[in-house]
Amino acid sequence: MLQKKFGDLTGWISYTLSEAKNRISIYGDSYFPASQDVTHEFKFVGMYDFRNWSFSLTWLFASGRPYTAPDGAYSVNLINGTSQMFIDFGDKNSSRLPAYHRLDAAVNYHFKNRETNNEWGSLGLSIFNVYNRRNIWYKEYQIIDGNILETDKLFLGIKPNLTFSMKIK
């Protein structure tokens, strides 16, 4: 980790390399990636102060998390004459979601007392996920007309936020 604490420009950069594995008997004798296994994680946080303004930029990157993907489907006829389809899944956590990354930005204007220079409030605009990255949270599977339909469930996309704060005392 590298950090700069002083001056108008401050912030930090960090990188983490990790590995998390599980071995659970119902899934076999071998180790498999844990659901929270994130191999690479990179974070950048930068802040800049200019007069009554403050700016911040955050960029996060993380390797895709493991998940268990289906490897096929089949149908079975029941005793009532109807047919039911099932999805069969592959090895536990043997697939990886795409990498997660997003950029957050914020700008704040600080209202200050002219005489005392004490801050009495601030008005800020922040944008979560500036470039609207489609980060996948999990996948959902359905059988429609004999085919497996895969749907990506996403984290939040681009989200602007306007905030105003005021000190009462």
Partner: peptide
């Protein structure tokens, strides 16, 4: 340094397709 890290990280993504295991489907009452 940051650019190199980015190239290294993004070049190491694994495939998202499960390996198919052929199994027989039995139906018998």
């Amino acid at each position: 340094l940051s650019l190199s890290a980015w190239v290294l990280i993004t070049s190491c993504q694994k495939s998202g397709i499960a390996e198919f295991s052929s199994l027989p489907v039995v139906e018998s009452y």
